[in-house]
Structures are given as C-alpha cells and as structure tokens.
Amino acid sequence: MSEEFGPNFITLTDEDGNEIELEYVDALEHNGQTYMAFFPVVEDEQDPEQVENAEDYGLVILKSVLENGEELLSTLDDDEELDRVYELFMEQLLEDEEEDS
C-alpha cells in the first residue's frame, strides 16, 4: 500500500500582526533542540507583492519549545545559533537533492 503525503502548511502571525502562510520543508535536531524549516507560500506567482513578501522572509527557521506542556514554535534570537542551524539545513537539503538525482 502506497501512501502519499502532501505538503504541510502552517499560518503564523508576525510581530506586525500580518499572517504568513508557511510550507514545512524539513526538521533536524542539533544539541538536543528540534528545529524546523519553512518557506513562505506564494499562491499567485504573478502577484508582485506576494513574491516580494516571500523573498523578504526567505527560509524561515523556528525551534520547537515546550511551554506549559504545549509544543510551540519560537524564533531563534541568537544570530550564531541561527547561522549554525541554517548551515545544517542547507547541508541537509543539498544531501537530499543529491540523493534524488
């Protein structure tokens, strides 16, 4: 039996109150912490505002944190942590791409 899974999407609200729809790309663990990568969704490639907004956000990396027993996604506030996790995601994505080739 073959099961196909479609993309996973989440909607977040940024600090300005704007809703952002994100498509789940991948997850990884680093130093006991789970990180998830997302790309902004562009529903209409012909809409310059949607394309510009997606380019502004680029690859979105969030970490999974437990708060009051509930799993939440949080931004990374440490630039060094963000840079290291970004590098790990890029390595992982490139490996996946090479395996698919």
Rank of each mutant, 00 (worst) to 15 (best):
L76F: 12
V41C: 11
L28Y: 03
D96S: 13
V60M: 07
D79C: 01
E29K: 13
P7I: 03
D16H: 15
S2I: 09
N68Q: 14
E99L: 08
R84V: 08
N53G: 03
E52H: 07
E71V: 15
D96M: 10
E99N: 06
E91K: 15
D16I: 04
G32D: 15
V25W: 04
L59I: 12
E49H: 12
Q33H: 07
D83I: 07
F5E: 09
N31V: 04
E98W: 08
L66W: 04
D100I: 06
D16Q: 14
Y86T: 13
Q46F: 15
T34A: 03
L22K: 04
D26R: 02
V65C: 14
L88S: 07
G32M: 12
F5P: 00
L72M: 15
V65E: 15
E80T: 12
D47I: 06
D56L: 13
E23T: 08
M1V: 07
Q92I: 00
D47E: 12
Q50H: 07
V25P: 11
E97N: 10
D100T: 06
P48Q: 12
E98F: 05
S101Y: 07
A54L: 11
E43G: 12
E21Y: 00
N53A: 11
V85M: 02
E55F: 14
S64N: 14
M90S: 10
Q50A: 12
E43H: 15
D14H: 01
A54E: 11
M36V: 14
E49V: 15
E80F: 05
K63M: 08
F9C: 03
F38I: 04
E21C: 07
D77F: 05
L88P: 03
G32L: 05
N53W: 07
L82K: 15
V85T: 05
L12R: 00
G6T: 14
H30G: 00
V51I: 11
N68E: 14
A37W: 00
V42T: 13
Q92W: 03
I20C: 00
L94M: 14
E43P: 00
D14C: 02
L12W: 01
V42Q: 04
T75V: 09
I61P: 00
T34H: 12
E80R: 06
Y57R: 12
F5I: 08
I61M: 02
